[in-house]
Design a protein around this nucleic acid. Structure first.
Lengths: 189, 189
DNA sequence: TAAGTTTACTTCAAGTTTTGAAGTAAATTA
DNA sequence: TAATTTACTTCAAAACTTGAAGTAAACTTA
């Protein structure tokens, strides 16, 4: 049933992607090119950007729904992303900033809410008293665990092996693109 | 309790992804396993979501910078996404809604600004007078063209072949994941 | 070591964007 | 012809983002 929803024709003609020693996927042309019409629409970086945008919105929607189901109503998907970014580590605001490419004042705003909601705990670092150290509270950890459980349940129900692999593939490729965009930002495109 | 953001249970070890007749990429095991250390970080869907988020922000930043460079200051990256979503076609608000998975009132808001800035033209459909038909004006088309030119210039300068392939790969895989999330939303995960 | 600079944040006040609950008007259906 | 549905738009409140201060600790330098 998924098949019907997939829209056909998109660049990237038949190809073989193979993972080499390091951590890159390579696309190599498939033996005898079957479709010569390379007018197959090639995804531009704008197409990807729109897809990123749309996917984010979609995913946020899912998280929102799950939060509602869990009876959490003092934080939204954006704050959840921050929780997930923190994960099991204890880190400084600065590190968190880097992790999510956030703006400082913005993270401060989120952290305030998360602290008020008791999802995270902050202590002033002893080493450097300017720096705040952040970590999840039990409540925060629990919420993350619940969400992960929901995600797993969802995967078990709806995902085929293929989907999980798509996830890995998308992650890898996107990760590298992001690094490139980061460089672009540094150099001033 | 919580086992971190990376859950270590998904096997994209050495593998070959190949595109079959339809439009799916498949992963098949690679001959002699080269890297045994499968501690290669495994991405969960939350990791991907965060990456999506971060990448979007990054890309928005680039667009903002480019808009500034072009002297455009009446619209931002979000509006640009809408312009790009419209592209060369003439479509109704409803179609646009689907394209970007937007919320109705939200698109209305964007369209208002884009109309005021003379980037798009809207005419009431003759067939169905409730429906507005949208298309880019010359100004809108020009802006899109300028941005695409900038993107190409950027690609020429910074991208290696690999990057372009990452783009295609990320697009494909993410596209399918998005469809899955869309289904999840329909079925109520 | 006093003075200046940088770092690591936080706060605040404007904006901007998003949401959701109406509202409007044209099409459809009963 | 009276509901109902569809295709939007509007509005106001909430959420979010930005950028310009502000604070205080750490570091540099004269």
């Amino acid at each position: 049933m998924t098949e019907g929803l997939l829209h056909p024709s998109m660049g990237l003609e038949d190809a073989v992607l193979l993972r080499n020693g390091g951590d890159r996927l390579r696309v190599v042309p498939d033996e005898p090119r079957r479709d010569q019409h390379s007018d197959a629409p090639q995804a531009s970086c704008f197409d990807l950007a729109r897809l990123l945008d749309r996917s984010s919105r979609r995913f946020s929607g899912l998280i929102s729904a799950e939060l509602t189901r869990l009876g959490v109503d003092d934080i939204g998907p954006a704050q959840v992303m921050v929780l997930l970014a923190i994960g099991d580590t204890e880190l400084s605001v600065g590190e968190l900033l880097d992790r999510g490419n956030y703006v400082g004042s913005n993270i401060s705003y989120y952290l305030k809410q998360l602290t008020e909601g008791d999802y995270i705990a902050r202590v002033t670092s002893q080493r450097d008293k300017r720096s705040a150290r952040i970590r999840l509270t039990e409540k925060g950890r629990q919420l993350c665990a619940d969400l992960k459980e929901a995600a797993k349940a969802f995967e078990r129900t709806f995902c085929v092996e293929q989907d999980l692999q798509d996830l890995a593939v998308a992650f890898q490729a996107l990760h590298r693109l992001e690094l490139m965009w980061a460089n672009a930002a540094r150099f001033g495109a």
